[in-house]
Nucleic acid binder design. Structure first.
Lengths: 238, 238
DNA sequence: CGTTGGTTTGAAAGGACTCAAGAGGGGTGG
DNA sequence: CCACCCCTCTTGAGTCCTTTCAAACCAACG
């Protein structure tokens, strides 16, 4: 119990109308009238690295919008093996099983420090039935989740290990202070995303680095000197 | 063009209220009032093996409910590699990207002879905004699709090849005339589902057969003499 | 300065892939 | 009705890649 308390912190209640990432999230299309229907509290939360936001098998009452950081959805199979089935990024909605009243299919765990909004499922359900705008928006979010999951799966689980890593870096690359960087996670987590062992992740990164596809391989970042070169590598696998 | 004509056949218009699989599909919760709102035609179609129901990149106007057979969702990556991202089964709804007006993320291709219903997306959208029952039902279908995709992915893409095949068989096993059988597909397709080469699929099936996990390995079916034994094998990987 | 958790690296073993040849089955045309 | 062809599936041998097990390394932290 104490463990949870240190890992989660309440940041206050959200004011969605003035939210900085509103344009990319669930409420982007809502108008004043719709907002007036929101009575349940939307909480603004903060989790430490490694904290469990919800666990597989739980019947959650909430869904979540990620404001900052990364979250992994970890699925435990019956035979004891684990896989990361989706990587939640800034602006993504997750935990949508709560809308259906069904148990969570996977555990949501913070990768690094994480800030998110917690929305009561009941509110979203009723609002969705009353507001065509939110209805549309929810369809869209479901669709995005599905498409992300399938593209992710299709890209990160095909071919040789170094190609998987390269595609992974490409998918997550972002310009940051003039240089293009991609985030890295614990090698074990990266392995769980692509179904390779952590040693292989490490070796693949080393070999990409030798080929000058990436530089400054660190614990949580790499820089990509030439994005086009990396793209070509992904496609041709030279 | 002629190629398409022989592979697709119109079976007439559907009467959803008396549909034999209505309980498992999109309209299961609708009442008389909702049905009265359905004006657009729902067609009953038939595709031959290998026919493309829709292609990746197309902006479809319809979604589909599978009545009989299997459909593969084949995703072509930018680098030319392909993966089967989902296997559509009896009662499943697919092609939901049409609801969002976005392009199909993958091609839908008939695996064997297939019977399905074609629903105009526009109808579902308006109906969904008017009927809370259909709204709920659609959420549920999206959720099912996502959960299927993720479980599928997590199960069929982890561990040794023979274990993947075993899990695959387990997931598709059904009692048929007293014996438990599982459908098989072309070895290449099975390979695309689990990211293994077709030769490896063949070898794995042979090795499962040697261990008496399965018998009568044929082109399109295997029989499973002892379901519990197969389950144990999946979990322990002895 | 030793401990701890995570990362890298090495060597050997095992699994999957490639290429290639052969076998089976269904359909077609003589 | 049979011979033939084509497509698919199986099987074999060698190579390449990934895993496994182990040890060394590194940075953060008390």
């Amino acid at each position: 119990m104490r463990d949870i308390e240190v890992k989660i912190a309440w940041q206050g209640q959200s004011n969605c109308q003035s939210c900085s990432i509103r344009s990319s999230v669930l409420f982007s299309e809502l108008n004043e009238e719709d907002f007036s229907k929101i009575h349940a509290p939307i909480d603004d939360l903060h989790f430490e690295s490694g904290a469990t936001i919800y666990a597989q098998g739980e019947h959650g009452q909430n869904l979540y919008t990620l404001r900052e950081g990364f979250v992994k959805l970890l699925h435990l199979n019956e035979d004891g093996t684990e896989r990361i089935v989706r990587l939640i990024k800034h602006g993504d909605l997750f935990g949508m099983e709560a809308l259906l009243g069904s148990a969570h299919e996977s555990s949501a765990i913070a990768l690094g420090r994480v800030y998110l909004c917690r929305l009561p499922a009941s509110m979203i359900v009723t609002l969705g039935e009353e507001s065509p705008r939110l209805h549309r928006q929810m369809m869209k979010k479901w669709g995005e989740a599905l498409s992300q999951s399938e593209t992710w799966f299709s890209q990160m689980n095909t071919g040789r290990a170094d190609l998987r890593i390269a595609r992974f870096l490409l998918a997550l690359a972002k310009e940051h202070e003039g240089v293009i960087k991609a985030p890295l996670f614990k090698r074990e987590d990266m392995g769980l995303m692509m179904d390779i062992k952590l040693e292989t992740v490490s070796r693949s990164l080393a070999s990409l680095s030798e080929m000058n596809m990436v530089t400054d391989v660190g614990r949580s970042f790499v820089t990509i000197p030439d994005l086009e070169k990396l793209k070509k590598f992904c496609q041709q696998g030279l």
